[in-house]
Every structure is written in C-alpha cells, then in structure tokens.
C-alpha cells in the first residue's frame, strides 16, 4: 500500500496581488500548503484565512519586502525544515507612472529591486533547496512590457526583461536537476494596476490567468504568454524594425 503523496507547498511572493490571490486560492482548492509573502501583513493574513477555509492543508503569512533582502534568509531557514515538495511563484513588481520616474530618477532603483533583483536574490537562496530535493516548480511572472522598451513604461519593462533573462538562466541550471522553471508573461489583466487606465483592451480576469499558470505547471511549459494570443501580439511588436519602432508610441 502506498502512503499519501507528499503535499505540495507553494511559496508565493507578492501574494496580495490580484493574480497571486487567485493563484493561491486555486492551490488551496487542490489541498496544497501555502506560505504567503508580501509587505502588507494584515492583508496577507486575510488571504491565508481564505485559503485555509477553501481547503489549503496549511496557510501561513509572513512579511517580506523585496527591497530588504536581509529578511530572506530567515524564511529560507524555515523552509529547510519542511518535508513538502517546495514550489515558488513570484508575483512581486512595481510600476510607478513613467512621468513620476522622469521627475525622480531615484525611483528606478526601487522598480528594479521590486521587479528583478529582489525576487532574483530570493530565488537564488531558495534554488539550492529545490535542487537538493530534485523536484518542484518555480513560476516567475514577467510581463509583455519586458519584450520591448516602450516610451510608456520602459523602466518597468527593463526590470521585467532582466528578470526574464534571469529566469531563463535559472531554468537552464535547475532543469538538469529535475526542477522546472516557468516564465510567465501576462498581457493586460483586470487588477488594481490597470483599473481606470485608458486604452486597455483584451483584458483578462486574474482567475483565468491563475488557471493558465496551473496548466503551465502540469504541462511543464517554459515560457508562457497569457492569454495565449499575447504571444502573437508580442511577436509582431518584436518584429517591428527599430528605425520604425523608435517613432511609435504604442
């Protein structure tokens, strides 16, 4: 007779974002354990309680600020004692308006820390644990904004592009050890980040995006555009020659 299968634990960075919340909920419904990380601890606790009611084996909340890498090690130590299959999903990132950045270039450091170096440092500490166990999945959420620098949000785009390249390398490293890394590039999603912004189209719900992430885990996809048609939209955008692109404001 076989014992019950080893449970999955999902470590979710930036768990208060709308997509992360939907993703965590779906993990809970599958009976996974959850460790929710982010800056807003009262809100994380609300999400953890929700996940517990929805069937999570266990749901914990801990404070984590992508700009304070000094906090990371304590969380890693705690995970070392867990016998679950460890998985991580990274949703952190920040997108101040480009005009605000133009007025105060000092903001660039924060964007890069939130969207790239913070999560990269966390994953770099976590990776040996997964490597050692030889299983698990890491999901890194990038953005279609990282595929090409555009006048409207190129600092955010640059940070996300850096993160995507990091994930590509991490996949190269961990893939040979049985750990799978997925890069996700969502298009426009109906969240507080896009609420009330003019010019949004083909806006997807956070629940649909989260469901596509779960599907990508099962199918061991490498780079996922979601909804799927963004792959083609971005293909076209990437194919526009630079001498034309530089004159566009799309």
């Amino acid at each position: 007779m076989q014992g019950s299968p080893t449970p999955n634990k999902w470590i979710i960075l930036g768990a208060t974002s709308a997509i992360a919340r939907a993703f965590a909920r779906q993990c809970a419904e599958q009976g996974a354990s959850l460790l929710l990380l982010g800056r807003d601890l009262p809100e994380l606790k609300r999400i953890a309680a929700d996940c517990a009611v929805r069937g999570a084996l266990d749901a914990q909340a801990m404070a984590l600020d992508a700009r304070k890498p000094g906090q990371f090690q304590a969380i890693i130590e705690r995970l070392k004692t867990s016998s679950d299959i460890l998985n991580a999903a990274v949703f952190v990132g920040s997108m101040p308006e480009q005009a605000a950045i133009d007025a105060d270039p000092g903001l660039i450091d924060g964007v890069v820390q939130d969207s790239f170096t913070g999560p990269a440092r966390f994953l770099h500490l976590l990776a040996p644990l997964l490597e050692e166990r030889g299983k698990g999945t890491i999901i890194g959420v990038g953005s279609v904004a990282g595929d090409r620098g555009r006048v409207g949000n190129y600092v955010y785009g640059a940070a996300k592009a850096g993160f995507a390249t990091y994930l590509s390398g991490l996949r190269n490293r961990l893939g040979r050890k049985g750990v799978h890394v997925i890069t996700v590039k969502p298009g426009f999603v109906d969240t507080s980040m896009t609420w009330g912004i003019e010019g949004m189209f083909l806006v997807a719900s956070p629940e649909d995006i989260a469901a596509s992430l779960h599907k990508a885990v099962v199918k061991k996809r490498n780079v996922v555009y979601t909804p799927f048609f963004w792959r083609y939209i971005m293909l076209i955008i990437r194919l526009i020659p630079e001498f034309i692109f530089k004159k566009l404001s799309i």
Partner: peptide, 8 residues
C-alpha cells in the same frame, strides 16, 4: 468607480 482590492 473605485474597486479596492485591500481592506486598507
């Protein structure tokens, strides 16, 4: 319309 995602 406002659509808060957090209690705060």
């Amino acid at each position: 319309l406002a659509r808060p995602e957090r209690h705060s």
